[in-house]
Design a protein around this nucleic acid. Structure first.
Lengths: 251, 251
DNA sequence: GAGCGCTTCCCGTTGAACGGGAAGCGCCGT
DNA sequence: ACGGCGCTTCCCGTTCAACGGGAAGCGCTC
């Protein structure tokens, strides 16, 4: 940019500004955004004013800043995630009604697990995943499914890098993980006890595009001691339904 | 911008690029985006490459362009719409299960009705509203509720401008509309037959933040001849539930 | 094989963007 | 009352990222 020593593009900076928002920080001051995004104060104020002008950000009553509805609209209108979500939702509701636990849909994004939808049952236990939240690929049942069906390079890249444990029981040994991935490809399901939280077991199945490529993972989070068989059956049926619905013309 | 006769900001242009995507056009060529956004070809190609670099756009197998998951993530993480939606979803599911018709949640955005969530019943009829879709405020039951509870200036502005009919029965007479709005404030509900489509009736109620300000409208779309009373009761109960859930700490 | 549309590379031009500085404002704690 | 702190707004000289016209390459279809 002009007079900027940074050599970044405006686009990169906008993304950095948007990145400063998350579930725990939905409203910020312009200065705070600048600090977190590593921008000079005057630049941050100018950019925020610019983004507000375009509707990507909004100001509340106290002059503070939050993400704009316009951004939400632009991101969803025409998005593939929405299409997938719409196809999946009826089936997810059915799973959730029968299994009565957290039900979630995840996709692969930039070598991580990105959760696209999540239904929570009122009586279900804790669950750290959130819509638009991420987890490492090796550290959740959904991620393991996505990794197992991802390209070979992805597996090598992920398993080659240092693997952090999310809970004390997260498997971080590459050799053991490779055996787990092989099991997923063989069985079409993974049961991952304690991977995310010690008290719960994740159960996940792949969702295919028609009969082909795996495009998502569908999972439930069960209490550690619950039987897994009923959940597996529900998930398999739902995944098949979603596969059929994706690609068909949606209402 | 440098060497640009336009006098626009980069941000505006990015928004214009994102605006070229919608439900019916989820994949485009870079040239097509440029044409629709009114950008010179070389500029469009550079911008698209830039946006792809940052993850806001993605390329598919045929080099074509679609909205990126990263954009989806940034827009939702930390968004107020998501919070509202999460609070509303369980109640909307209940409405949908009982009424068995399209159920939708809308907010006011830039003098229009913006639909934030929609659940469709498999057996329900057609419905032109879409998630992240818009309708004029006077032209849907949800919009009428939002307009009725909006600030006075909003009503004057909207009713002062020329009002387009969406269906042959859309009410476009300002005086009649003002009576309808008064009725909504008095009754806490609107029944709007044929406003959006001749074959259906929209029924909508306000959703309040706690006991105060109206933050959204909850609606169902019934076949024209269906009784409205059961739907009204369900909607009122659901709206009360959502009001209680919003503001409470969400799981 | 000519025509068309999408894409990529090149390159001289230039004004939008940059960011340091300073002053205004509101809110604390003393 | 006052000084300090943080957020914000305005100003303004500097400058390089962004711009966009042009041309050539590529893969279609007619």
């Amino acid at each position: 940019m002009a007079n900027s020593p940074s050599g970044e593009t405006v686009t990169e900076r906008i993304v950095r500004v948007l990145e400063t928002f998350d579930t725990d920080r939905t409203v910020q001051t312009a200065s705070g955004i600048g600090r977190r995004a590593g921008l000079p104060s005057s630049t941050a104020h100018r950019m925020v004013a610019d983004l507000v002008e375009c509707g990507l950000l909004e100001r509340d009553e106290e002059h503070r800043v939050r993400l704009g509805m316009r951004l939400w609209e632009l991101a969803l209108r025409g998005s593939h995630a929405l299409r997938l979500r719409q196809a999946a939702l009826p089936f997810m509701e059915r799973v959730q009604a029968r299994v009565r636990e957290h039900t979630q849909l995840a996709v692969l994004e930039n070598d991580e697990t990105l959760f696209v939808e999540r239904l929570s049952h009122p009586q279900a236990g804790a669950n750290i995943t959130r819509i638009a939240g991420r987890l490492p690929l090796h550290a959740s049942s959904s991620g393991l499914v996505l990794l197992a069906h991802g390209p070979r390079e992805l597996q090598d890249r992920v398993l080659g890098a240092p693997l952090e444990a999310v809970s004390p029981e997260t498997v971080t040994d590459p050799a053991r993980l490779r055996r787990i991935l092989a099991g997923i490809r063989r069985d079409g399901v993974v049961v991952a006890p304690g991977t995310v939280e010690t008290v719960s077991t994740g159960v996940a199945v792949p969702v295919r595009e028609g009969r082909g490529r795996v495009i998502a993972a569908l999972s439930v989070v069960l209490p550690r001691e619950a039987p897994t068989r009923p959940a597996v059956d529900e998930l398999r049926a739902a995944a098949a339904g979603i596969s059929a619905a994706v690609g068909a013309h949606l209402p």
